[in-house]
């Protein structure tokens, strides 16, 4: 628990808990998430997590980005996407006890695969694909709409892996997570 009485959603050093992340990528996620949150809020901020029908509040601490960091993350779209990955991975860790174990490339980026903490990932047969989206300035309805879109896209998608969709609204301080399917 922190001063605000809410348990923490820890964005920093994700690689210490998520075996699929490297220190440099974990740093990238933390920096970009800090830039996104700093656009609208002061640290610490309380975020609402709606996860598979449950709701909770978590306190998030982030460093105020300096000019170098802001300059490095000048591209809004990249920053929001990367920041959403950092926040989503931290959120599925505390809510679903899942951590990033594997990554596989796609043409335009990469898919992340999560698995229960402590799982050995000798293959991808039982891993869960994480579908992430970020919204910088939209309100709650935008977050909910984007989650519905993401779920529909994932259902229509070609992968037959179970998946989790996660949408982060940085201004709204909201994270919406939903399991898409057990198996298709």
């Amino acid at each position: 628990m922190n001063e605000s009485g809410k348990s923490l959603l820890q964005l920093e050093s994700l690689h210490d808990r998520h075996p699929g992340l490297t220190a440099s990528l974990s740093g990238t996620f933390y920096e970009s998430a800090s830039v996104c949150l700093n656009r609208h809020h002061e640290s610490p901020v309380v975020m609402t997590i709606a996860c598979n029908g449950r709701s909770s509040k978590k306190s998030v601490e982030f460093a105020k980005p300096d000019a170098r960091v802001l300059n490095a993350w000048a591209n809004d779209i990249d920053t929001t996407e990367s920041g959403a990955y950092g926040v989503s991975l931290a959120a599925v860790e505390v809510e679903e006890h899942l951590v990033a174990v594997r990554r596989a490339e796609t043409l335009t980026g990469a898919d992340w695969y999560v698995a229960p903490i402590g799982t050995r990932s000798d293959d991808l047969e039982t891993c869960i694909r994480l579908e992430v989206s970020g919204i910088d300035a939209g309100g709650r309805s935008a977050v909910e709409t984007r989650l519905r879109q993401k779920i529909e896209q994932t259902k229509r998608g070609t992968s037959n892996l179970p998946a989790i969709a996660s949408v982060v609204g940085f201004k709204e301080k909201a994270i919406a997570i939903e399991k898409v399917s057990d198996d298709k």
Binding site: E105, D111, D123, L161
Partner: peptide, 14 residues
């Protein structure tokens, strides 16, 4: 391991 093989194939080509 059909899933692993499919994902790895896509990943390698990408």
């Amino acid at each position: 391991k059909v899933r692993t093989r499919g994902i790895t194939a896509v990943s390698a080509v990408a």
